Simulated scan of single mutants.
Amino acid sequence: MTLEPVIIAAPFTAMAAAMSYVPDEVFASNIVGPGIALIPTSTSGRVEVFAPVSGVVAAVFPHAFSIDVGDSRNVLVHLGIDTVELRGDGFELHVSQGDTVERGDLMISWEPSVAEQAGYALHCPVVAVQAEDSDFDIVAELGQPVTVGTPLAVWRLREA
């Protein structure tokens, strides 16, 4: 039996890319789980990052957040690679751990130029944490732009 699928939407306007394109082996090899990478289409100014799914904020850091969507499913959005080293510089949080959010709610404001100037890659993995590859289907066209709310992927979960 398959439980209700989760549609994962684009949290910001970006170029869609394969996870294998991410310059971090943990993400590129799907160790955290399958996903899709987003690369901001603009690095000047602020990028508003919205919830790609509805659920409860399981974790939030200046550079990343995860949302528990239920049925043991958690979606992670990581803004840039190694941006934890910025210690919050260039990020503004709009939610806290434990908050209930709806798809499209504002999560973080980000200034990619801060990360770029510090030499960090701007690839942003959107990950179905610990999902089976067979349960995750990318529906966005890789190599093409996506806007906020554009469906990126569908995560199905089969009952054991």
Rank of each mutant, 00 (worst) to 15 (best):
A59W: 06
H63R: 02
R103A: 14
E116V: 04
G119N: 07
A51I: 10
F65S: 09
V84R: 09
V101H: 08
T41E: 12
E116Y: 11
G35W: 05
T100A: 11
L106R: 08
D99W: 08
T41N: 12
A118K: 13
S109C: 08
S29E: 15
D99S: 07
D99N: 10
T100V: 14
E111T: 07
S42T: 14
S72W: 08
D68E: 09
I108A: 00
G55F: 08
F27C: 06
G80C: 07
G104S: 06
V114I: 11
V95A: 05
S96C: 11
S72G: 10
D89G: 00
E48M: 09
E102S: 13
E25T: 15
G70C: 07
S72I: 03
S96L: 13
G55M: 15
V56F: 01
P34H: 01
S54V: 02
P34V: 06
I81L: 12
A118I: 00
L93I: 12
E25I: 13
D105M: 09
G55P: 08
G104I: 00
E48S: 15
G45M: 02
G90W: 08
E116M: 14
G70W: 05
I81E: 10
V57F: 15
A115C: 03
I108Q: 02
M107L: 12
E92L: 13
L76C: 03
V47H: 04
G104H: 06
A58D: 14
L93W: 03
R73N: 00
P34T: 03
A59L: 14
Q117T: 12
L79R: 10
I36R: 03
D71A: 15
D105T: 12
T43N: 13
F91A: 10
V84K: 05
S44A: 12
D99E: 03
H78L: 06
N74H: 01
V26D: 07
G80D: 09
I67R: 01
D71V: 12
R73K: 02
R73W: 04
T100K: 15
G45Y: 05
V56R: 13
T43D: 14
M107N: 03
M107A: 05
D105F: 03
L79A: 05
T100W: 14
A64F: 03
D71W: 07
I108T: 01
V84A: 08
I36S: 14
A51W: 10
I67P: 08
E25D: 13
G55S: 04
R73P: 06
V22P: 00
H78G: 04
L79I: 04
T83H: 07
G55I: 12
V32R: 10
M107Y: 07
D105Q: 10
V49R: 06
S42M: 13
E111L: 07
I39V: 12
G35I: 04
F61H: 14
E111F: 06
E85L: 15
S109I: 13
I36E: 06
G80V: 02
I31G: 06
G98R: 02
G55A: 11
V60L: 11
G80K: 04
S54L: 00
E111S: 14
V114Y: 09
P40R: 03
L79M: 04
G80F: 00
